[in-house]
Design a binder for these strands. Structure first.
Lengths: 233, 233
DNA sequence: CCTCTTTATTGTCATTTAAACACTTTAATA
DNA sequence: TATTAAAGTGTTTAAATGACAATAAAGAGG
């Protein structure tokens, strides 16, 4: 088989920024890096791309190996290629971000894995350029969520409107008038009201809703925009 | 120096999707591929990432080598990594897109280079997965132009409002009411009206405008959205 | 049982923004 | 001087947005 001779070959890695939501605050999944350099320091979920797998496959494999997570929302973010980003050897990294409902995957993750959730506002120092990856990922989900209903990926199948609002407020780091919020979110036609209530958060209890999957796929491309003054898109 | 032993190393390429505008229609810059496989077929501007350069540097270098273009708007788009996308040897490609004013770089490009402009609606068949890259790039500039004033990168320093409208109509493949368009575009405060007119397009002539660079940088993050029913963002 | 407390839920009005729509102006050319 | 082709300009109506406050439900505690 022919080859492109005389060209440099590089290490290619994938790093996954995993966001989770517990109904209260946004969280980030981190892991203690298992090998040198920076062994033992907090890191995104990363690994090398293998010979025969696509980038998406690599991202899914690595996520599963390190956390047990499978079948989650995963999207390519950006590729980081500064020559010196890894001090050992040049490694270009394709970053992905994942959005998951913490509760749903709680069991799947369990204690077999070293991954730990951190409140987004209290993340430790990260290895290499992972901090930069995280910032980009936060920007991207804001940008995307302003026009697409991706944030539902972070919620359980059944969720309440106050939870949903809470999530939007976390992501956009703002506050939203609840009357206007529920008006607009209901106007999308994406929600189905259920008969039962979530009594955990209040005495009165808030009705559960679930996604109308039909409308969800139909409207994924052009969604609402109900974020008042998001800091930066 | 330590190395990550036993990991696969891959070829990493950069491909540039170069859009241009001549005041009339959107165009795409293509080149005849200079080596096997697919030698002689139409291709995006591509090349391999070298040992010591960043991805951005590689994209700029390749663009300059193949077209003479320098200092243009260049943004990372997406990374394509299907294992078989290059039949000779696995090559992962980081795609970039560029936006340029054709007239400005006309001289810079000249005849030293093999690159040729094609109307976007009449592009030939492209090598490998370059067609897919092109589609993604078109989506991305629509998406981005809906919120940021990037399309000005495609225009000369002095341009007319009909030209600007024409550009938006090309990119979003739609038609816009000219009264509403000029109202909104002027309301952004991004344009400075000049004293002279462009008499090329009409008897009466249309006033030239130029960007108010101060406001441009200030408002880059949150721009207008005046696209009625863009097909897909 | 009654009161208190907490959170969920619902509606109106004023303002802003968006969309539809047509005539006048200009200047070259015939 | 009449014609023509494109530039430029306002108004009206409908829809969306944003600000705003009172009521309902249910558990907790006296």
């Amino acid at each position: 088989m022919l080859k492109y001779s005389k060209q440099t070959r590089l290490l290619l890695a994938v790093d996954c920024i995993v966001f989770g939501f517990d109904g209260e605050v946004l969280k980030l999944l981190l892991i203690k890096r298992g090998f040198q350099p920076e062994k033992g320091n907090w890191s995104l979920m990363g690994g090398f791309v293998q010979d025969t797998e696509s980038l998406d496959q690599a991202a899914n494999r690595i996520l599963k190996q390190l956390t047990g997570l499978e079948g989650v929302y995963l999207e390519q973010l950006f590729t980081f290629g500064e020559p010196t980003r890894d001090p050992i050897e040049r490694t270009v990294s394709v970053a992905y971000f994942a959005l998951i409902d913490i509760q749903k995957y709680q069991t799947q993750m369990s204690s077999d894995y070293q991954a730990e959730w951190f409140q987004l506002k209290r993340t430790p120092k990260l290895v290499f350029d992972h901090q930069e990856m995280l910032e980009q990922a936060r920007k991207r989900i804001r940008y995307k969520a302003a026009m697409h209903p991706i944030l539902f990926e972070l919620l359980p199948t059944k969720f309440t409107i106050p939870q949903l609002q809470n999530l939007y407020e976390c992501v956009f780091n703002t506050t939203i008038d609840k009357r206007n919020f529920s008006k607009r979110v209901l106007a999308t036609g994406l929600l189905i009201k259920l008969a039962d209530k979530d009594k955990a958060g209040s005495k009165r209890g808030a009705y559960y809703y679930q996604l109308n999957m039909q409308n969800y796929y139909a409207k994924f491309q052009a969604f609402m925009n109900f974020i008042p003054n998001p800091d930066t898109l």
